[in-house]
């Protein structure tokens, strides 16, 4: 096999695997959703009959014209229809807000979630790995038990408890007769009322004000695990033979810490980070609900409560694709970072 074809072929193989995985998961989701009790279109029709006094036939034809979906079709026929549309990223229209494309709803909500969860993840990763490395290098210092203890503590608390605590801390408790740190209305929603949406400072400031505590929640709920992972990984590399020999070679301590210990300790952590990128979209259900933050998580929650099949399918599919792609990204990243598992062809030399 010619060498220059190896990476494209490797990538092609992986992408086919990704497509297969996504197909399996969407199929499962399609049928699982329909296993949930109650039929949303029937409910809509009943609603029209009761509220507007329409006849059942009238209401049914109204519903049929509104929804592209025909739930009286056989399950398999619906499935084929769904697959055909999903390939074109057309998820149909929402039940809950009739006439609105699911893709539009997702497009409107996704940036908010990506922004808050993503920022929280990146900040916690940077600070967490730095603290973890320090805890490992200075494992005889007085502050190492504090770092490790706090990290274990934080990683053991569920994220919604952290969110509730932060809401209390910032928005409810009053401090020395001065009122709360953040006005409580800033802990609800994505931005304040009465700002013009667009690239203007009042809007950006309002967005930052409103996202501050949610981001802090994501930060605190994840930092503990990064500290512990990095500390463990670094400790394992500190006494590795190559680190000892590097010292015997007279290398400068800083060089040993970065190029020899740090570089190797980061290997498993970087993979973990890449994999977690995929969970950004789905990892925010409860937190977004607590902050009434209009993101994908909250939208999914609403869709599920109201049996909005197309919207649920759309969001689940996006989540699946994100997770599978981030796993692929992790795999590629790892092979770039670690030459030992790099795809290679034939023997390099005798």
């Amino acid at each position: 096999m010619p060498k220059r074809l190896q990476f494209p072929l490797f990538l092609l193989r992986k992408l086919l695997k990704v497509a297969f995985t996504v197909w399996v998961v969407t199929t499962l989701i399609f049928f699982l959703i329909r296993l949930m009790p109650s039929n949303p279109i029937e409910q809509y029709i009943q609603n029209l009959v009761i509220q507007y006094g329409m006849s059942y036939e009238e209401a049914t034809s109204r519903a049929a014209s509104l929804f592209s979906l025909d739930l009286s079709q056989s399950m398999f026929a619906q499935y084929l229809e769904y697959l055909k549309d999903a390939v074109r990223l057309d998820f149909g229209t929402s039940f809950l807000s009739p006439g609105v494309q699911v893709s539009e709803i997702i497009a409107a909500r996704l940036p908010w979630t990506l922004f808050t969860v993503g920022t929280g993840l990146i900040l916690s990763f940077i600070v967490g790995t730095a603290l973890g490395a320090i805890a490992a290098y200075r494992r005889e210092s007085w502050y190492e038990p504090i770092i490790s203890g706090l990290s274990s503590f934080l990683s053991a608390i569920p994220d919604f408890l952290i969110a509730i605590f932060l809401i209390l801390f910032f928005g409810v408790f009053t401090w020395w007769g001065r009122g709360s740190i953040v006005p409580i209305f800033q802990l609800r929603g994505n931005y304040g009322a009465g700002v013009n949406i667009g690239w203007n400072w009042p809007f950006i400031k309002s967005v930052l004000d409103h996202s501050f505590v949610p981001i802090l929640t994501y930060f605190f709920s994840q930092i503990g695990i990064w500290v512990l992972l990095m500390k463990g990984s670094t400790t394992g590399c500190l006494n590795a033979d190559y680190a000892v020999i590097a010292r015997a070679r007279g290398l400068r301590p800083r060089k040993i810490l970065t190029s020899y210990i740090g570089r190797n300790a980061m290997l498993p952590i970087a993979t973990e980070f890449a994999m977690r990128l995929g969970f950004i979209i789905g990892g925010s259900l409860i937190i977004e609900q607590l902050f009434v933050y209009q993101g994908v998580g909250l939208e999914l929650l609403k869709a599920t409560t109201n049996r909005d099949y197309p919207l649920m399918q759309g969001i689940f599919l996006i989540m699946t694709i994100a997770i599978v792609l981030s796993n692929l990204f992790a795999e590629i990243l790892y092979s770039l970072l670690d030459p030992r598992i790099r795809v290679k062809g034939g023997s390099k030399h005798a």
Binding site: D241, Y242, I245, A248, Y260, R263, N264, L267, D338, R340
Partner: peptide, 14 residues
């Protein structure tokens, strides 16, 4: 000073 275990004396990623 060359320590025992020369099999892992080199930084595996460089």
């Amino acid at each position: 000073m060359m320590f025992q275990a020369s099999q892992s004396s080199f930084n595996p990623v460089a």
